[in-house]
Amino acid sequence: MESRGYRWSRRAIGIVSLLLVAATVILGLWITPPDVVQGQLVRLIYVHPPVAWVAYLAYGVTSIGSILYLWKRTRNLKWDLLAAASAEVGVVFTGLTLITGSIWGRPAWGVWWTWDARLTTTALLFVLYLGYLALRRVPADSHQRAVRSSIAGLIAFIDVPIVHQSVVWWRTLHQGATVLNPSLSPKIHGEMAMTLLLGFITFTSVYAWMLMHRYQIAILEQKVLDAELDQLIEERRREPDSQYGEARPANDVGNIDQPSKV
């Protein structure tokens, strides 16, 4: 079962996330002024870049989880489950990035979609990790699934810069970095910058909360699988005509590798 500390920290992060979301909504929709050029449309800036950041963060966590599982010294199924949970949340946030980007793109660029470098990379990233999640659904034992998906997760992460470079050379239309530009002088109003920063904190907190929930569900799913397997083994042992001989008492599970009666 989950520890009390984990449960409390999850709840605390949930409450903090809720408050942060409320603050972001109020600041983003009412307190901050509309932009000189983009008007009300600028309010999407408090959602779109933070959501994209969380998607990259989630895939980063997936890669770390994958490395920790593949490295034999730190091998533990929990790392694989953490990688999977983070990838799932990452796919949700990548989807949100694409949707919010499209909503922004339609009035700003006049099209829902354009073959810009970042858009194309993000779309490919979305499909790459959908593939990762599909691979996880392939029936296999826990270790086999963990090894395969860790490798796939890691390769996908290594592939991202190559994909990005190729589409950057192909075409670039997306606006340059606003805050972290090469001269490090933010071209953004103070109030708006604060709300944007709050957006980043809010969505990171929401990510942490979703990750903790998804991870806990993954742990429970794994426990159910293990319990089902144990039950099946027990039932097999109880069958009178099984190669393990006559029925045994319920509490005598024994060792499957060393049957006492053959």
Binding site: L124, V127, A134, L135, I155, D159, I162, V163, Q165, S166
Partner: peptide, 8 residues
């Protein structure tokens, strides 16, 4: 799995 990876 393969097509997005080999898109570059």
């Amino acid at each position: 799995l393969l097509v997005p990876v080999v898109s570059p």
